[in-house]
Design a protein around this nucleic acid. Structure first.
Lengths: 217, 217
DNA sequence: AGCCTATTTCAACGCTGGTTGAAAGACAAG
DNA sequence: CTTGTCTTTCAACCAGCGTTGAAATAGGCT
């Protein structure tokens, strides 16, 4: 099963993931990737058809796993509430906690992956299409859950709220170091425990405010 | 004053801004930029020292103006409240409204600029340093205002909240089209009025929740 | 007019990019 | 040992990259 060729294929994906995450798709060279993977340049084109295909393979590999564990977490939360609906914060936590767990377990790879996702999500070139392709089925499932938790809420409010969530989440997990600079070290981008405490609460409050019945104006 | 050379310099900056915003720094060629600016390649190196310097000039140009109008908006809000402090939502609106005005007035350029900023903010390569260099003085001023509006709030909560704000804001103004896909056209990325109605409220709720005294757990 | 500086063009340099074809090596099956 | 397939290496192609030096032009002084 785990043939030697499969192992080099994984090494190429790991190297590509790390470099794409650090410098972006266009700035990275196939030669750099293969050097990091300790393999010949041409092997990249044996295992993948092109640089672009390699990029897609990098994105796909972990997207599938991430979608699976998030779905599991959402099912678990919904199972706990057979009659009433889960709270917004519980639903959002089911979206973020699996990721936090992966980032805690893993030394590097998932951190690289999330830094890459942040770039993809915020790029006009990729953002629309690729995020849709890799994540939308799961996201729609989450939005359904949120709609149940916020029954009088307009569809549009939920989509906009999710969009704000998406921006906050991807930047946060990108760990660019900006927060560290801004706060003079008071906060650290890499402090996953701080994120777990704060992000779901912050975002749930936003959802709830937008979905609250309007005060007359 | 407005010499002819100044005009071509601006044309180069406009062209670079649009292309960098669409495809990212590394994917764009100096030749592409100069073709779009209808000028010879070598002129890029007469007006700027290198591709990298041109990139910095693109970022700098509008950062200064944006910081100025935001500062003005913040001063105006604080002036209106000479005794009491402004609300969190008012402060956040002072951060977002000037931008919304610029995006409404302008046909293209500011949209390109914000798409570019989203990429910079989410890149590990640039995010830490460049955002700090161009925007931090103003951001610190905003954080001071927020601290006054949330007097019993921990420093760390405010920095984290601002970080979530930053992610939501930059993704939203990047107009990647993701929201349009996800919502099947119910929401449009380019709908600035929808953003103005929702974003400050959503984010203010987040700040207030994080800064609320902890319920025992 | 002529001059001087600021701007623009032209042509090229050296190098590296993604990609490929053909040959070499590994290794299981007969 | 031989055959055949999967994997890896080697060497190269050529288009396009950032960048530059020198020559042409333009436009305001005197």
């Amino acid at each position: 099963m785990a043939t030697k060729a499969q192992a080099t294929r994984e090494r190429i994906l790991d190297a590509a993931e790390a470099l794409f995450a650090a410098d972006g798709y266009a700035a990275v060279t196939v030669r750099q990737i293969m050097k990091r993977a300790s393999a010949d340049v041409a092997l990249a084109y044996y295992h993948f058809d092109s640089k672009r295909d390699l990029f897609d393979a990098v994105l796909m590999r972990r997207a599938e796993h991430l979608n699976a564990v998030r779905l599991e977490a959402l099912d678990e939360v919904e199972g706990r509430h057979s009659e009433d609906a889960p709270t917004v914060e519980e639903i959002i936590a089911a979206f973020t906690n699996p990721l936090l767990d992966l980032l805690a377990e893993d030394h590097e790879a998932w951190h690289h992956y999330m830094a890459l996702i942040a770039q993809v999500n915020n790029s006009p070139e990729w953002g629309g299409e690729l995020m849709t392709r890799y994540f939308d089925p799961l996201v729609r499932r989450f939005i359904e859950a949120l709609r149940k938790a916020l029954p009088h809420c307009d569809e549009a409010e939920i989509f906009w709220s999710y969009h704000f969530l998406s921006g906050a989440l991807t930047l946060t997990f990108a760990e660019t170091g900006r927060l560290d600079n801004l706060s003079d070290g008071v906060c650290r981008s890499s402090d996953m425990a701080s994120i777990a405490e704060r992000m779901p609460a912050f975002l749930a409050a936003g959802f709830e405010r937008l979905c609250a019945p309007k005060t007359k104006d």
